[in-house]
Design a protein around this nucleic acid. Structure first.
Lengths: 148, 148
DNA sequence: TATTGTTATACTCTATAACTATA
DNA sequence: TATAGTTATAGAGTATAACAATA
């Protein structure tokens, strides 16, 4: 009788795993908000502040401040836009790209560590669910490709 | 060649879905931090502040403040502990339990909405991955049962 | 002295409203 | 007047360090 996908179980399973990841992954020195913006910059290339804000789902003022912090950290930089002096283009720096690489490696290692204790069936099930997970995420996001 | 579970893809898929959920679920009036604590109280029953802090992965001072906010909201309350006057027991109120119920219903509905557009195969894959997801989450968490 | 919890302080992250500069 | 971005201000959430009360 329970061949229906249980939304509650899925939501809770997702949150628990993600919260576990966050607790175990030291964060590589940046917060989630910063990492998300760096990821967006990496995926989309240079963006305006307003564009970044929309893609990350925060307000323009919030993104202004986030970009300032990223700039202060050396992970992003502001450049002016030829043709429209109002626009600020935000670019990922080499240090920012490096950081992303390290974060990805760390998280992949952590996940590998966590999943290697699973049964082969469980691992197979997780792997098989990945495309579906991506499609769920992409449905309303439309923020870009699936390969962050 | 790719029968190995890709940690990067899994981590990103998880984060994207969860971040989508957070953006789409209005939150039912409480933040993630508050909801997580209420969930822990619901799962474990009355807890000390230090216990809550450990279970939620935050510091004791952070939990003290969170409990104060929850108490102010009417979702939790402090009670003294017979036998040890240093200990504060935090209890979920009826309003807190109600809130949890509403949140779960809202999220389940949202997830159902998101997943009903998936193919039957995708839904099946997600459902099949749930137990594995739970086991990953439970591995280091040990926070209790799987039925939040 | 050790444990439990709180207070003090500071920083990140977010929002809304008001502002500046350019178009 | 509309658009892009910033600044001002406020609040949630977090951490570390210092503190009070109890054991």
């Amino acid at each position: 009788m329970s061949s229906k996908l249980d939304g509650v179980a899925l939501a809770n399973g997702l949150e628990r795993v993600v919260s576990l990841l966050r607790r175990l992954a030291p964060g590589e020195g940046v917060s989630l908000a910063k990492a998300a913006t760096l990821r967006t910059l990496d995926t989309h290339g240079p963006c305006r502040v307003s564009e970044l804000a929309a893609l990350d789902g925060v307000t323009q003022p919030a993104m202004t401040q986030l970009v300032s912090r990223l700039e202060h950290d050396g992970y992003a930089e502001r450049r002016s836009c030829e043709g429209d002096a109002r626009v600020v283009m935000v670019h990922l720096t080499a240090a920012g790209a490096d950081l992303l690489r390290r974060r990805r490696a760390a998280r992949a290692g952590l996940l590998a560590q966590l999943t290697e204790r699973l049964s082969a069936d469980d691992r197979t099930a997780l792997e098989a669910a990945l495309p579906a997970l991506d499609r769920v995420a992409a449905y309303h996001t439309d923020s870009g490709s699936t390969s962050t």
